[in-house]
Write a protein that binds this DNA or RNA. Structure first.
Lengths: 352, 352
DNA sequence: GTGAAAGCGCTAACAT
DNA sequence: ATGTTAGCGCTTTCAC
């Protein structure tokens, strides 16, 4: 089965390739009658233009490359899905560059490889190898526009900022408001920017409540449920007074809940637990998990819109328009894992 | 910043474009001395050949299109990740076609669009719209090789088959062996092939044990934890004797656990629960979830290898080699949700 | 071993 | 409104 080309359609319709090309690209300079005749033939034969040839000739691929970490984490996965939908809506395809290992050994070569597929723009949706970006020589700046999702990466602009610090602070304030006095925290790996921000939110939450934070209240995980389980084990031994935990994502919170279940420590009476992300399963943990819901749809919509605007400017040889940064606020979702029974004699420090 | 081309390198090296092309493609017909000189220049300037131009000229893109459902389900996501790694290892890029809605309205147009990007092959990794494939007129068969992952889709060959029926049967047998007499099942949507297979496994498991299955023991979910919660609610009312549940995936099992937690029905004493998939979180449910682990790595490795072999044959204008089908066995992972403390004395009939 | 010419399937710039 | 002429950057004959 030979593939159809522009020429086949042109021959069949008795016009030149150029006219067919105009029909395909909705160029107005085609007679009404010619257009319908050509279009009919295209439909009848099921012709689809070769995108590779089209890209080479037009010098644009209608493709957006996305650099993202493994999608087994909820955050990256939600972002990839949303970006895919938003990009489609804007007429672009996504070209995912999934980073499987922690870091590519040679980021510069990695980016050159990415560019060799001629994407029209790049979305930087990975936060744990941001520092590496500085290894890019400043003069080798990309020949195409690039934006980051919600992450501050040196040298890459971002159209949105998520108030991670405030959101985490809000969660911690809630734990304290429910009567907790000794709030521990389980962080993600420190090379992820979001880890550092959520930790900072915890710190500020404590300070705000007049409870000085201390290092022995902090344990580190790697985002997985298992690491949450192990981290909680460590926390219980190094900080026995702990009566509430803020886990930096929901998976780790799940590991925490499991350990408490095993040890027979009641949640929330003996221990309040909060997570971060509001994965779809969080409502069905036992008990349901108090957590922070992120505005992924907004993040991705704004990011794609911004990038598309930059691409348009790039194609029109205009200077890039300034990027205005939207500040987005996550939402605290309160569920059973932190709601102490009102009837109980639990201590309340303050009320919001 | 202008992009480098073959010509730039050729000029710099004082050779013709073809020689540079030969160096890039590791063509042996280049003098040792010339090769190193050219290669040095390429490295120094950081030249990467334009993949679009290369694809157009060579008539191959080293790209594999993957048709897959939304990756918010664990199965599709695990498959996408594995395929990505395996494809990379084989020197191919993945071009994911994520189906966001349930079904594309016009599958034929969808496939033509996919083909217009000139992938060298297609992996059909979606099982819920398989029936639609039959709408393809038989003569419009694809001009490139296609294989399915583990799903039997009419018209598409698959290199692996997973023993879903036996695995489900094994899980049910285990529940019965733990003292359950009234095993309910929560199925996925019936348009997914795996739903039907797992249901069949449940049926055979009961028959095998001399327990005739009946329709009122069956409730349907949509893979989500919420649907598992709701399905379990229905199951408890329509089949009050139920003392064990086989959920067709782990998320739904989580919903089940949550409902039982709310109602104070003890797991596993009053109710055994088993899931399917062994998502990384399953071990950290409370209690840990008994489930079926699928051999995703093997599935994807074999699938990619098979497709690459077909692509090679296609490029060499040889007939496709016959596909030998591997049968893979999932593994039963037993955890707390089904392990009754003592066999015998505790067989509670109902609590709700 | 190397180079010149042709062409992949399309779009862009200039015809008419 | 339509056709003609050049490429896009590369690989592929086929010379030498």
């Amino acid at each position: 089965m030979k593939r159809l080309t522009l020429e086949d359609i042109a021959r069949e319709a008795g016009v030149s390739k150029q006219t067919v090309s105009r029909v395909i690209n909705h160029n107005p300079d085609v007679a009404r009658e010619t257009r319908t005749r050509v279009q009919d033939i295209i439909n009848r034969l099921g012709y689809q233009p070769n995108q590779i040839a089209r890209s080479l000739s037009a010098k644009r691929t209608r493709t957006i490359a996305v650099v993202i970490s493994k999608i087994d984490q909820y955050g990256p996965r939600a972002i990839l899905l949303e970006l895919d939908q938003q990009a489609h809506a804007a007429g672009y395809r996504l070209l995912p560059y999934i980073i499987h290992e922690t870091e590519p050994s040679d980021l510069d070569a990695y980016l050159r490889n990415l560019l060799s597929h001629q994407p029209d723009g790049v979305i930087w949706a990975i936060s744990n190898i941001g520092d590496l970006l500085e290894s890019l020589s400043p003069d080798s700046s990309l020949p195409i526009p690039i934006v980051a999702t919600d992450i501050n990466v040196s040298g890459i602009q971002s159209a949105v900022a998520v108030a991670h610090v405030q959101a985490s602070q809000m969660a911690v304030a809630h734990l304290i408001e429910q009567g907790s006095q000794h709030v521990g925290v389980i962080t993600g790996p420190p090379n992820w920017a979001v880890s550092r921000l959520r930790l900072e939110g915890w710190r500020q939450g404590l300070i705000e409540a007049g409870l000085p934070p201390d290092d022995h209240q902090i344990v580190q995980g790697d985002w997985s449920a298992q690491s949450g389980y192990e981290a909680m084990t460590r926390l219980l031994s190094q900080y026995p007074q702990v009566d509430a935990v803020f886990a930096s994502n929901d998976q780790m919170a799940l590991g925490v809940l499991h350990l408490l279940y095993e040890r027979g420590i009641h949640v929330p009476d003996a221990m309040c637990v909060a997570g971060y992300d509001d994965i779809p399963e969080a409502a069905y943990f036992s008990p349901g998990l108090t957590t922070i819901r992120q505005p992924y749809t907004d993040i991705c919509r704004i990011t794609v819109q911004t990038l598309v605007r930059l691409i348009d400017a790039h194609n029109a040889d205009e200077p890039y328009p300034p990027i205005e940064k939207s500040l987005l606020y996550p939402k605290l979702i309160v569920r059973g894992s932190s709601l102490r029974k009102k009837a109980g004699e639990t201590i309340k420090l303050e009320t919001a």
